[in-house]
Simulated scan of single mutants.
Amino acid sequence: MDWLHVVVLSVLQGLTEFLPISSSAHLILVPALTGWPDQGLAFDVALHIGSLSAVVIYFRRDLYGMAGSWIRSLIDRRLDADARLAWAVLLGTIPVGLAGLAAKDIVETHLRSPVVLAFGLIAFGLLLSWADWRHRGTRSEYQMTWRDVLFIGCAQALALFPGTSRSGITMTAALLAGFSRQGASRFSFLLSIPVIVLAGGLETSELLTGTQPVDWGALWLGAVLSGISAYLCIHYFLAFINRIGMQPFVVYRLLLGAALLWLYL
């Protein structure tokens, strides 16, 4: 990989991992449009590590409180707000984990075309727009019920469809359930942690069984750039989401989807 390739994909992964615009769509689209070769599993793992580091560092205080309360809940079976949120994140990950194991081969072999991406971007973008306009509530992530966890967790499984966006569909589901933009976004970011761990772990296991050479310089640079861009993305997204809403991201999704249809149909 040349350095331009590394920089573009790393920054793109960091930004799109947490914005509701589909990171998978961009990482599939860029090589398709530029003719760049596939970046390989090792580079994908490095980008996941960078994104994971960013969200863990950003929410470090929340995660510390959640971890302590979760451990205490195992001992005394009492659930305070932090423990409930920790359980919500863990249980909300189960549907996408099961769906990923069941549908991984189908998604990777049959659903990665630019046309499929375009329909995913447009359809789920319109759903996000409707949820943001009509169903925005006032609840925070600490007011999660078990019904909310099931609903948002099952919605997250739809992110296996390219173009959906994991963050986009979980924010959409949370908005439909009556959460504020901040509450929906924060829970979506927290929910990304076990998902990124699972995805990175699966890719790492596949990498360890392979024999491809590893460009360690590209991996280190990719992880650092992905982490920095992801951290900045989370910070500024949460700072401005109440002011700007979801509609700018919807417009971007619609324009990108339309461009893909124009290019590939």
Rank of each mutant, 00 (worst) to 15 (best):
D132E: 04
A159N: 05
D80M: 09
R72P: 03
A184Q: 09
D148V: 04
S129G: 15
I71E: 01
R147P: 05
L150W: 14
T170G: 11
I75Y: 10
I122P: 09
I75C: 13
S185P: 03
L150C: 13
S180Q: 14
I152F: 03
H135R: 15
R112D: 02
S129Q: 11
D148L: 09
S165Q: 01
G92K: 09
T138A: 13
F151P: 06
L101N: 02
I75D: 07
I169F: 02
L91K: 02
V107E: 00
V107S: 05
C154V: 15
K104R: 15
G125W: 01
I169Q: 00
F124E: 02
V115T: 13
V96L: 07
L128P: 07
L90K: 03
H110M: 13
Q143W: 00
D132C: 10
T138N: 15
D76E: 13
A131V: 08
L176V: 10
K104M: 00
Q156M: 12
C154G: 10
L160D: 05
A123F: 12
R186N: 03
S140I: 04
S73L: 06
V115G: 05
F187Q: 04
L176S: 08
F151V: 15
P162K: 01
F179L: 11
I75K: 15
S129R: 14
I75A: 11
V89Y: 05
R78H: 12
R139Y: 06
L74I: 14
L176P: 00
A173K: 08
W87L: 06
G125F: 00
P114C: 00
D82G: 07
R84S: 12
L176W: 09
I71L: 14
T93V: 10
L158G: 08
R166K: 13
